[in-house]
Amino acid sequence: MGVLLFKWLVTALAVLHPFYVSVSEITHDKSKNELQVSCRIFADDLETAIKKQYKAPLDIVHPANKAITDSLIAGYLAKHLFVTTDGKAVRLQYLGYKIEEEAAWCFLAAEKIPAFKRAHVRNNILYDEHPNQINMIHVIQNAVRKSTKLDNPTTDADFSF
Rank of each mutant, 00 (worst) to 15 (best):
Q93C: 04
E25C: 13
A104K: 07
N65D: 12
D151F: 12
K55C: 04
N124C: 02
W8R: 10
E100A: 06
F107D: 08
S71L: 08
N65S: 04
A12P: 01
E111C: 04
P57I: 03
P57S: 11
I125H: 04
L72Q: 09
L5H: 10
S31V: 05
L13H: 12
V90L: 10
A43N: 04
I50C: 08
V37E: 00
L5E: 14
A143Q: 14
P63S: 00
L108H: 11
K32A: 14
V21I: 15
K51H: 00
T48I: 06
A119H: 06
Y97H: 09
D59M: 09
A109S: 15
E111D: 11
A115Y: 07
K112W: 06
Q36I: 14
H120I: 14
A119W: 05
N123H: 06
V144H: 01
R145P: 00
Q133H: 02
A115W: 07
L4F: 00
S160N: 10
D45A: 06
I113H: 02
K7Y: 15
L108N: 10
Y94E: 02
I26G: 10
K149F: 01
T84I: 08
V90Y: 10
N132M: 08
Q36F: 09
P18L: 12
T155S: 00
T84K: 15
V10F: 08
F161D: 02
D45M: 05
K98D: 09
R91V: 13
N33W: 00
P131A: 06
F159Q: 12
E101I: 00
I26W: 09
D59E: 13
D128L: 14
V15Y: 11
K30C: 05
V21Q: 12
K79Q: 13
T48C: 04
H62A: 05
V61H: 00
L92I: 08
D59I: 07
I68K: 02
R122L: 10
Q93Y: 02
P18D: 11
Y20G: 04
P57G: 05
L35S: 11
W8K: 11
G75H: 03
E129S: 15
F42T: 06
T85Y: 02
F116E: 07
D128C: 11
E100Y: 06
Y127K: 06
N132R: 09
L35A: 12
H80L: 07
K55S: 10
Y94D: 03
N33Y: 00
E129C: 14
V37A: 00
D29H: 10
I125C: 03
F42K: 08
A12E: 14
G2D: 07
M136D: 04
Y94R: 03
K146E: 05
